[in-house]
């Protein structure tokens, strides 16, 4: 019996092949096999005969929407920065999308980064992606040489061991708390749709930090980010980060110091998180790619919570309305704004 993922892989290959063969799309963004256990390579396929290398499994942790604007551009006829847009319809691109990734495509469309008409969404319900880090921590000190995936278990193999573990137990935190595994955009359905998951409080991890005293919160923040090496993998893996020059890279003026000063590192993370407010879908790509195992996702998750509680909005769920931070209403809650009067009162 083929596993769920083997069936999905087969379907993805068939659909991608058909879309490329009849010229509906010029490229398909998917995943191919990785060179290490629990890794996959994001891959752009441009020829129908190459579709056999596409795979789907529990280790597809990067958000493929991240590649969409660039791949869309790559299939346009080449033109200079000031040349007008060519006449006629431009070639399309197909992209695999789970619940969160599809919501990112909605945000990209709202922000005019992506032309929805040029995208064919291969919608696939996510069963939750596995955290390679969680598995490695469970097997600390032992080298994992192969991981075989079944529907509900993973078999972890090393030179002198073979152990079965429950798949859900090592699914990423963001996936475990996710309520919408099914894509909100589907042009071509892969596999079966999934229903909403019940979760009375998806923000439990954030609440735990909020419950701390301000000193403890500061201790958490400084400790959590102390090992950041400023490689910016978290930023670069994020489909929301598309500024041509990021504020941390800018050298003229230099907004943030460039070395490993705790203040600079903290500033980078706080500002990055704020830039994602109302736009982040909690896809977890940032956290998954961090080489140092930092849980920077807690910051964006906190902002997701605030945007939901203050404005009743969730990224990618209201395609027709403006993004929460690009608009305002006269009755917007503003209790969090520190006014001079309030500051004086508190100081008394």
């Amino acid at each position: 019996m083929p596993t769920i993922n083997e069936k999905l892989t087969e379907e993805i290959r068939t659909q991608a092949k058909a879309l490329l063969a009849d010229g509906t799309v010029a490229a398909v963004i998917g995943y191919s096999r990785g060179s290490l256990p629990m890794t996959v390579k994001p891959t752009v396929v441009r020829a129908s005969e190459d579709c056999g290398k596409l795979v789907w499994n529990s280790f597809c942790v990067l958000n493929l929407a991240n590649y969409l604007p660039e791949v869309l551009k790559s299939v346009e006829p080449p033109r200079g920065p000031r040349d007008p847009k060519p006449e006629g319809p431009l070639a399309k691109v197909a992209v695999l999308a789970t619940g969160c990734w599809s919501r990112n495509i909605v945000v990209q469309t709202q922000e005019h980064q992506v032309d929805r008409d040029r995208v064919v969404v291969l919608g696939v319900a996510s069963r939750g992606m596995v955290s390679r880090r969680k598995v490695e921590e469970q097997f600390a000190g032992r080298e994992i040489l192969a991981v075989e995936e079944f529907d509900h278990d993973l078999v972890i193999k090393g030179a002198d061991f073979e152990e079965k573990i429950n798949r859900w137990s090592v699914v990423r935190d963001n996936c475990q708390t996710c309520t919408r595994p099914d894509p909100v955009l589907v042009d071509v359905r892969i596999g079966e749709p999934a229903s909403e998951r019940k979760n009375p409080n998806p923000f439990q991890q954030v609440d735990k930090i909020e419950e701390k005293s301000s000193d403890e919160r500061w201790a958490w923040f400084t400790s959590e980010f102390s090992t950041c090496i400023r490689c910016y993998a978290c930023r670069n893996a994020c489909p929301l980060c598309y500024c041509p020059t990021c504020f941390v890279d800018d050298a003229k003026p230099q907004w943030v110091g460039k070395s490993l000063d705790a203040v600079d590192t903290g500033l980078f993370h706080l500002l990055r998180a704020y830039h994602c407010a109302g736009r982040c879908t909690d896809c977890g790509a940032c956290e998954s790619v961090c080489p140092m195992g930092i849980n920077m996702r807690m910051l964006t998750k906190k902002l997701n919570k605030d945007v939901l509680n203050l404005y009743g909005m969730e990224a990618g769920m209201q395609p027709a309305s403006p993004l929460p931070l690009t608009t305002y209403a006269t009755d917007d809650p503003q209790k969090f704004i520190v006014t001079e009067a309030k500051a004086v009162k508190e100081g008394e």
Partner: peptide, 22 residues
């Protein structure tokens, strides 16, 4: 096409030695 141009490889690499001055 697949590289995300982060610094994970070069920063953790022992033999990458490029620097900038500020």
């Amino acid at each position: 096409e697949s590289c995300i141009n982060c610094g994970a490889c070069t920063f953790n690499c022992p033999t990458c030695y490029c620097f900038d001055v500020q």
